[in-house]
């Protein structure tokens, strides 16, 4: 008998994602919320892995856990009462929030129910944990290569446009955050700090 652990893994990961997401909004310390967010993002990366999209899973961990959450934690450490335990976590407008959540749920459910759930044609090749093929999914889908060809062949234009958009956003952020130049400050707010 071949034991298929994929459903078990899915439910465990789903529980992890949901539980950690709940912990993010209910944690009494900001830093704990940040740590719970890491759990959520890791769970999502695990779900990607379950779908055999290893590249996406790796990028998820590298970008979100490795960069964005770390920056968030830095920001949390710069706040004043970072060890204060009595953070207020409940919304002051519960009914409005509930209504908005229901609306979001309706939209998502609509999307989920109307989708045809296109699956990869060769799903039967890898219920991966058989002792013969082991964990060798590498041969089944060369995901990185496929992704690279996709990005540079049919999707070149959107890819480049997204990068330009991000560049514009970055420059705009710099422009907004920059100190306005004053007459007595010739370096125009971007002087190098000499320690």
């Amino acid at each position: 008998m071949i034991f298929d652990p994929n459903p078990v893994a899915f439910w465990l990961l789903a529980a992890m994602v949901t539980g950690c997401a709940l912990a993010v909004i209910r944690a009494h310390k900001l830093y704990h919320a940040g740590l719970a967010l890491v759990g959520t993002l890791f769970g999502v990366a695990g779900l990607y892995g379950l779908l055999q999209v290893w590249f996406l899973a790796g990028v998820q961990v590298l970008v979100y856990v490795g960069a964005i959450v770390i920056l968030l934690l830095f920001a949390i450490m710069l706040t004043h009462h970072m060890m204060t335990p009595n953070l207020k976590t409940l919304s002051t407008q519960p009914w409005t929030a509930a209504a908005m959540c229901l609306m979001l749920l309706a939209v998502l459910l609509g999307g989920i129910l109307s989708s045809t759930w296109q699956t990869a044609p060769d799903t039967t090749v890898y219920p991966t944990w058989t002792s013969q093929s082991g964990f060798q999914v590498a041969e089944a889908i060369p995901s990185v290569k496929a992704l690279g060809f996709r990005l540079l062949d049919p999707f070149t234009l959107p890819f480049e446009m997204v990068s330009v958009l991000i560049l514009v956003a970055m420059i705009a952020a710099l422009a907004v955050a920059r100190k306005p130049p004053t007459p007595e400050d010739p370096a125009e707010g971007c002087e190098e700090v000499v320690p």
């Binding site: 290893w54 961990v61 856990v65 490795g66 959450v69 934690l73």
Partner: peptide, 18 residues
Amino acid sequence: DLDIGLLYVVAITTLTIL
């Protein structure tokens, strides 16, 4: 021998910062 070996290594290393 993961398909994304190098990426995996770099991604896991970020946990150290955390």
